[in-house]
Design a protein around this nucleic acid. Structure first.
Ligand SMILES: [Mn+2]
Ligand SMILES: [Mn+2]
Ligand SMILES: [Zn+2]
Ligand SMILES: [Zn+2]
Lengths: 143, 143
DNA sequence: AAATAAATGCGAATTATTTGCATTTAAATC
DNA sequence: GATTTAAATGCAAATAATTCGCATTTATTT
């Protein structure tokens, strides 16, 4: 992690490295609260938010919207993966194989007022198998 | 607007109708602050947030993430349009013609733990022509 | 017009994110 | 390895975003 930071012109400081490790080890995008909890030690929330912002501006991490009313972040791995989010329990699963980038130029042609597209976000909102089963069971019980 | 509300089992109250009009007349998704300002009269912020949530749950409006650290909402028109957002000035333009829904079943097959997809959000982050020109001009001045 | 559940307003509470400033620390220089 | 210095951190306090409790008002039903 230290190398990534230095290559971006950032100081490889202990809090930042710890935070990056937390993000890297997490299976789902992490929020400031989760990060604070998992970084353990003492990393101030202000430092966490400042780190999120600088790491985002250097494209080391990217922001993901899960509609939880607070931001989440994950490593910016350049593999263009996206997320499925359960609208019932909040579960998040990564998915890949989206072709959207290949359509950038077509979208740009259709757009009146945009010069470039740098990135996109694509999220799917649905119901996970666990929640679907629960609903099914509930329905059966009532009937 | 009153009809839409009643059809969803909601009371067609004055604040709600005013809010829906604001959302309908806006060219871009609106935030709670913008709504408060434009509804004029006095509609309490708590009422605005409560309305956003109930209208969202009835699928009359939908939430849009512009990465501004607060939620935005627009009418849920079922035409599957999406947004281009300028990372420099925040400008928002609607775009349509996305084929993502036709790929729901393929994504579902690829997903380990999801039973259904109900909707998706697709946002493009780029630079608008106005901002692109400004940058160009700045670069030229420096050179 | 009366009854009633739903919705609102208002104030206060949470939650989320940012800021100012004194102090510390990583990296560069000697 | 000690010195220098700009960048980064911690702490406390500020601001922004969203939610809650409860008394009062309002839209529909009767
Ligand atoms: Mn992910
Ligand atoms: Mn729109
Ligand atoms: Zn679920
Ligand atoms: Zn712009």
């Amino acid at each position: 992690m230290a190398g990534i930071l230095r290559r971006s012109g950032l100081k490889a400081t202990h809090p930042r490295i710890a935070l990056l490790n937390v993000i890297a080890e997490s299976s789902a995008p992490v929020s400031a609260q989760e990060a604070a909890k998992r970084v353990g030690k003492k990393m101030d929330q202000a430092t966490i938010y400042r780190a999120f912002n600088t790491l985002k501006s250097k494209k080391i991490i990217r922001q993901v919207d899960l509609r939880h009313n607070h931001a989440h972040y994950e490593l910016f791995d350049y593999d263009d993966h996206h997320h499925m989010i359960c609208i019932s329990c909040g579960k998040v699963e990564d998915i890949s194989g989206c072709e959207v980038e290949s359509m950038y130029s077509a979208f740009l042609r259709a757009a009146r007022s945009f010069a470039t597209i740098e990135q996109h976000s694509l999220e799917f909102y649905g119901v996970c198998k666990t929640c679907a089963e629960k609903t099914q069971r509930k329905t059966h019980t009532i009937a």
